[in-house]
C-alpha cells in the first residue's frame, strides 16, 4: 500500500509540472497586468511585481479613451439574450426530436445535424447580405439570432431527453397532459443538469466569439468585449501591461463562471462530447 501511494505521489508531481506549463501563461498575464510598463519584459521574470501598478493599469483600462464599460455591458446583453434564447429553442427542438412521434422527424433531425458540417465562414457573404436586407446588420439582435441557432445544444439536450423513460411521458398523457405541459412540468426538470451544462457552454462561446461581431457589427457603440479588447490593443500599441490588464478583464468573468460550474462544464462536455 505504501508503495502505491508513493507512485501516486510521483505521478501527481509529474502532472503538477506539466500543469505549470498550462497555468504559467495565465499567471504571467496576471502579473504583467499588475506591473508598470517598464518592468513587464524584464528577464528573469519577476512573478511578483516589484512595483505594484495594479490600480493605475486597471483604471487606465476601465476609464481610459476606450469605453470598456460599454463593451462589457454590450457583451453581457448579447450573451445573456443569446444564451436564454438558445436554451429555449434547443430544449424545445430536443424534446420534439426525442419525445414526440411525428412523420418526417428523422429526416428533419438529419437535416439539422448536417448543417453542423457547414463551416460558418462558407456562408458569411450570403449571411451578410441577408442581414442587410432584413435590417439585422449592425444590431445586437442579429448577433443573438446567430448565436441562438446552435445545432450542438439541440444535439446535446436530445441525448439527455432520450434517457428519460417513455413510460413517464405515456402515463402523463393518460392522465390528460398534453406535450407542452409534459415538456415544461416533467421534461425540463428532468434534464436540468444538461440545461446547466449547455447554458454555461453557450455563455462561454457567445462571450468569446470574435468572428460574428467583427463581421456583423459596424457601430462602435455596439461593440462587444472581444472587439473592444482588440481595439484597445491596437490603440495602446506596445503597452503590454495595459494589454494584459484588458485581457485579464475579458477572461475573469468566464473564469468565475467556469470555476463555479466546472463540474457541469467538464462532465457535460465529456458526456455530450460537444465542441464549440
Amino acid at each position: 500500500m505504501q508503495s502505491v501511494s508513493a507512485s501516486r505521489l510521483i505521478v501527481t508531481a509529474l502532472m503538477g509540472i506539466v500543469g505549470i506549463f498550462f497555468i504559467l501563461p495565465f499567471i504571467w498575464m496576471l502579473s504583467a497586468s499588475f506591473k508598470p510598463e517598464l518592468e513587464v519584459m524584464t528577464y528573469p521574470i519577476q512573478w511578483i511585481p516589484k512595483t505594484w501598478y495594479m490600480i493605475e493599469n486597471y483604471t487606465q483600462v476601465w476609464s481610459g479613451a476606450v469605453p470598456f464599460t460599454l463593451y462589457y455591458l454590450n457583451s453581457i446583453k448579447v450573451t445573456l439574450m443569446a444564451t436564454a434564447l438558445s436554451l429555449i429553442i434547443s430544449a424545445m427542438a430536443a424534446y420534439g426530436f426525442s419525445k414526440v412521434i411525428f412523420k418526417g422527424r428523422e429526416a428533419m433531425f438529419i437535416l439539422v445535424l448536417a448543417t453542423y458540417m457547414i463551416p460558418s465562414q462558407a456562408i458569411l457573404v450570403p449571411q451578410f447580405m441577408m442581414f442587410r436586407w432584413l435590417g439585422l446588420f449592425d444590431s445586437h439582435f442579429g448577433l443573438v439570432l446567430l448565436a441562438a441557432s446552435g445545432v450542438l445544444g439541440t444535439f446535446l439536450l436530445r441525448q439527455f431527453f432520450m434517457s428519460v423513460h417513455n413510460e413517464i411521458i405515456e402515463s402523463a398523457r393518460i392522465d390528460g397532459a398534453n406535450h407542452w405541459i409534459i415538456f415544461f412540468r416533467i421534461g425540463l426538470p428532468l434534464v436540468k443538469p444538461a440545461l446547466a451544462t449547455y447554458m454555461i457552454l453557450r455563455f462561454i462561446w457567445t462571450w468569446n466569439d470574435y468572428q460574428n461581431p467583427l463581421i456583423f457589427l459596424r457601430s462602435e457603440a455596439l461593440f462587444t468585449l472581444q472587439l473592444g479588447i482588440r481595439k484597445f490593443a491596437d490603440f495602446n500599441g506596445e503597452f503590454y501591461s495595459l494589454m494584459m490588464a484588458g485581457a485579464v478583464s475579458a477572461i475573469l468573468p468566464l473564469l468565475i463562471i467556469f470555476i463555479v460550474g466546472q463540474k457541469q462544464v467538464i462532465e457535460g462536455v465529456a458526456s455530450g462530447s460537444v465542441k464549440g
Binding site: 434547443s90 427542438a93 424534446y95 414526440v100 437535416l111 439539422v112 441557432s149 406535450h179
Partner: peptide
C-alpha cells in the same frame, strides 16, 4: 395528428433559424 402538429411546433423555431441562417445562405453561396 395532434402529435404531428405539436412535433413540428416544438422544432419550428430551431428549423426556422437553421433554414434562414444556414441552409438558405449555403445555397446562395
Amino acid at each position: 395528428f395532434y402529435d404531428m402538429i405539436n412535433g413540428y411546433l416544438f422544432i419550428l423555431p430551431m428549423l426556422l433559424l437553421t433554414m434562414t441562417l444556414v441552409v438558405i445562405p449555403i445555397i446562395l453561396s
